[in-house]
Nucleic acid binder design. Sequence first.
DNA 1: CGCGGGTTTGATGATGCTCAAGCCCGGTGG
DNA 2: CCACCGGGCTTGAGCATCATCAAACCCGCG
Lengths: 197, 197
Amino acid sequence: MHVALLQYIRNLSVTPLEHEDVALIKEAFVYKCIRKKEFLLKEGDVCRYIGFIIKGAIRQYTVDKKGNEHMQNLCIENWWTADRESFHNQTPSIYNIDAWEDTELLLLPKANRYYERVNNIPAFREMRIRLDDNNHIATQYRLHSSINHTAEHRYEDLMNRYPEFAQRFPQHIIASYIGITKETLSRIRNQSVRGKL
Amino acid sequence: MHVALLQYIRNLSVTPLEHEDVALIKEAFVYKCIRKKEFLLKEGDVCRYIGFIIKGAIRQYTVDKKGNEHMQNLCIENWWTADRESFHNQTPSIYNIDAWEDTELLLLPKANRYYERVNNIPAFREMRIRLDDNNHIATQYRLHSSINHTAEHRYEDLMNRYPEFAQRFPQHIIASYIGITKETLSRIRNQSVRGKL
DNA sequence: CGCGGGTTTGATGATGCTCAAGCCCGGTGG
DNA sequence: CCACCGGGCTTGAGCATCATCAAACCCGCG
């Protein structure tokens, strides 16, 4: 059940995982299933764990006064999910995190007695550094893109980078993720279809 | 000369710096002054070092086909500057990094023989983790903000968070940083002045 | 004095939002 | 088996925000 996570760590680190590391990870990460629409974190609550997605799809978003949802992040298999600010400072979150598909996760609670020890596993530490690098790069790009590129450009970018998103999430969620309305996305798609004829 | 950096590391870490760590840092980081408008990194070049700003102000930006500059980052004393993607992968950068004021830096070259050892200093490592956390949080917020908030809201946010930017950078640079034109920023400011009468 | 960088102002237009309506389709219950 | 319902997608009209382009202004400096 932890095999996906172990493999993931091995892929992103150079130092191998020792037997004792594997044992520690198996104890520290708790398995959890949530159903579609079930919440992992609600606005106002404190984020108590980091989640690794074994299977499924997760949304992280805010809701404005008018009730509109704004997707901050979309995550599928082999991604991590958490509100890092809330987790790090143990302050109330501004985000909601819920499942878009039935999802299996491995949760690493901050409060458990293994948390520190897991973070001291060399391979795990290396993985985190790699992850931070990748994440930083991707977020910088997204920021740059959201300021400088047109809606159409951003949509094409996303489809190139994560084509599977189109199968897993409906258009109004994709639209929100790239910062436009579902109507605008619909028009963009029809235009570019026409463009290809 | 390295005192600002050493102090910075101590502030962000728990583990103290040993004498030998201090010595290593002094050897690894090379001091450099650059004049206003001088480049630290040019689009197309590979980013070869991470810079810590002792004194001065730095811009990181792209230039589009029309010649317009788009600020990705503004940094002053006690901030780090680099194109992490280019540095990490040693690939050509899409960014320019130049000085807006005469600037003093400490550069940590990737190629030097101390690089790995510096990264193994416990206090330095802790600092990086803290830094990544803070950075991640700030960038997520900026992303959220750039998608969901109005230009006026973003401007006020920036002025609250980094009021000194207004003294250090001209308006057209501030405008670009929050993703609007200088004309729009000018109008926003006049409006809100009128609003306060 | 004149120049260059920065800021302001105005007119015009593009991009994307809002609101409202209708469509499509799969699922549920009568 | 059909009717209806709800979620998602599309289409249209009107509108808000912000970009663009052009001109003028302001001011410190050689």
